[in-house]
């Protein structure tokens, strides 16, 4: 239980630390945006105040703005502001997005959490599909490779992993879009109109991103799995099983795979989380896929600081929670790692 408590405390510390760093970095623009939003609202209201001279109107607005700034503490030094925003984020206090919203809806403002909630399912759809496919292809490859280390399959896996790691995913995405969408017209490109209720349409649209991500992650996943399997192959109980005359197939299925399953599952799931957090951002941008990664780009393009800040917070939260869950899962799967 002790490690669980430590991990949970760790998670909280990291979350608060990241939130504070992000809040501290953005507290200035955030406060300015908040003030501007309130000022605009006041200027709308003042139009209903009939019988006021322009001078009086300005005073009317400024007076209320001043009270608002003081009541919200927006004139405080940056560290107090940062603390305020940190607490806001941790409490999921909803922020308003104006610039990004006007990019899509021309005017008005929407709740940031609502925007993020809209995008999350798209990211999960894309990266869950490709992770499952990766696992399906990588595991047999890894098994073959681990059976004869140094063989042709093994070398293929190693080379593949070298390229998978040393290549920006979004670059291969660009090449694939050119070849498969624009040149050979096999799959839909990033500009295609998609009817999200039509499964065929969605599949056509998903195919290229899923293929790209899968191809890139198979190499690295297979390489990691191969290493785990090789270690397991060299363990004494496998040698004993072979010495006892257990058929090779059973050695593989009953002894090796069972022992190697926990780390393999963890690796696959963890690489999924990593890919969502790190790989997705630019890959989604290139594929014009309206997930969380693409939202980063939208927020940057439209200078929408509230969206950027809240998005970073949510990403960090999701990432840390998944890591935490994986830790628990791993201990659950692997009886050897019962930590007292």
């Amino acid at each position: 239980m002790r490690w669980l408590v430590i991990k949970a405390v760790n998670l909280l510390i990291v979350l608060v630390a990241v939130t504070f760093i992000v809040a501290a970095m953005t507290s200035g623009p955030m406060a300015q945006i908040q003030i501007n939003q309130y000022k605009q609202a006041l200027q709308q209201q003042v139009k209903n105040q009939l019988g006021l001279t322009p001078q009086e109107r300005m005073e009317w607005v400024n007076e209320r703005l001043q009270t608002y700034i003081e009541s919200q503490g927006l004139n405080k030094p940056w560290y107090i502001l940062s603390l305020k925003y940190t607490i806001d984020l941790l409490k999921f206090t909803d922020l308003n997005s104006t610039t990004l919203t006007s990019m899509y809806w021309h005017q008005g403002s929407r709740k940031v959490l609502y925007i993020i909630g809209e995008r999350i399912p798209f990211s999960i759809l894309l990266f869950t599909t490709s992770s499952i496919l990766t696992l399906l292809f990588a595991l047999p490859l890894a098994l073959y490779a681990a059976r004869s280390p140094g063989g042709r399959v093994d070398n293929t896996v190693i080379t593949w992993s070298v390229f998978g790691v040393s290549m920006p995913w979004w670059w291969l995405a660009m090449v694939f879009i050119y070849l498969f969408a624009y040149k050979w017209h096999i799959f839909a490109g990033p500009g295609a109109q998609t009817d999200w209720t039509n499964i065929v349409d969605v599949l056509r649209r998903m195919a290229l991103p899923v293929i790209t991500v899968t191809i890139l992650s198979i190499g690295d996943s297979a390489f990691r799995m191969r290493n785990i399997l090789l270690d397991t192959f060299n363990e004494d109980f496998v040698t004993v099983a072979r010495a006892k005359g257990v058929p090779e197939h059973d050695v593989l299925m009953k002894h090796v795979l069972r022992a190697a399953a926990p780390p393999i599952v963890t690796i696959v799931l963890f690489s999924l989380v990593l890919s969502v957090v790190n790989g997705a951002i630019i890959t989604e941008l290139v594929f014009n896929w309206f997930g969380m990664g693409r939202l980063y780009w939208d927020a940057i393009e439209s200078n929408d600081v509230p969206v950027l800040v809240e998005l970073t917070y949510i990403t960090t939260l999701l990432y840390l929670l998944t890591r935490f869950a994986l830790d628990i899962l791993y201990t659950y799967l692997d009886p050897r790692v019962k930590r007292a």
């Binding site: 990291v14 990241v18 760093i21 992000v22 970095m25 953005t26 957090v277 790190n278 951002i281 980063y296 940057i300 950027l308 800040v309 998005l311 970073t312 990403t315 960090t316 990432y319």
Partner: peptide, 9 residues
């Protein structure tokens, strides 16, 4: 830390 998001911010 999730590197890329923080790096982007």
């Amino acid at each position: 830390l999730p590197f890329l998001p923080i790096l982007i911010v």
